[in-house]
């Protein structure tokens, strides 16, 4: 669907192409077929709306149609979040998880709360994995450490002087790694469950 086929005015063609570029950018990470279909559907909507707009000038008609359709960054967000969540629950890829959470944060309060909690969970996974990796290099900074002044640090610490007891010693490596793995799997499974319950038709909502 090329702008040349529908618009005579250069400015209108420019507005159309800019909107098209915005859509292309937003949908750049969706599946090729899905992107093609969505682009076609949105453009079809815009042209129908353009044709029925009462304004006199071509540019005004198109701008009105775009205005009525809304900001694509906002109205396409739930759809993109859903795609990333689906992919993340299938691939377990941290990159997809991060993208899904990022887009979900902007699609409603409840989802934002769930996303934030999941985000915190993934940060915990990251810290645990970091503990397992850093323990051999910084033994007095990582672990469950009791200091001479009676304070206890669990995790990663800046202060390494005055360590009285290292409760777990090098056992912290397998324990942290196992916990990171289990929490990661648990969170991602939960993510999958949340996503499925959201997309499934639930008559009790009505």
């Amino acid at each position: 669907m090329k702008s040349e086929d529908f618009f005579k005015n250069t400015i209108t063609k420019k507005i159309w192409n800019q909107y098209d570029q915005r859509l292309q950018h937003i949908l750049r990470r969706t599946d090729k077929e899905e992107k093609k279909e969505l682009l076609l559907e949105i453009k079809s909507h815009l042209l129908e709306s353009f044709n029925q707009d009462p304004a006199e000038s071509e540019e005004e008609k198109l701008l009105n149609a775009i205005d009525r359709l809304g900001e694509p960054e906002i109205f396409l967000r739930p759809l993109i979040a859903d795609r990333y969540m689906t992919r993340a629950s299938r691939t377990l890829s941290p990159k997809d998880v991060a993208r899904g959470l990022y887009f979900s944060l902007f699609t409603g309060f409840k989802k934002a709360v769930i996303s934030s909690l999941l985000g915190l969970g993934y940060i915990l996974v990251f810290v645990l994995a970091l503990m397992a990796l850093l323990k051999p290099f910084f033994p007095n900074h990582v672990g469950v450490l009791l200091f001479n002044d009676g304070t206890i640090t669990a995790g990663l610490g800046i202060n390494s002087s005055g360590v009285k007891t290292d409760y777990l010693g090098y056992w912290v490596i397998p324990i942290s790694a196992a916990l990171a793995f289990l929490i990661y799997i648990g969170l991602t499974k939960y993510l999958h469950k949340v996503r499925r319950s959201r997309t499934r038709y639930r008559k009790e909502e009505f």
Binding site: I42, R68, L69, F75, L76, P78
Partner: peptide
């Protein structure tokens, strides 16, 4: 906002409704 309908249509389609 007219665009709101498209993610919903997509979801209904995915749910085979």
């Amino acid at each position: 906002s007219e665009g709101t309908i498209y993610p919903l249509l997509n979801r209904l389609k995915k749910d085979d409704l």
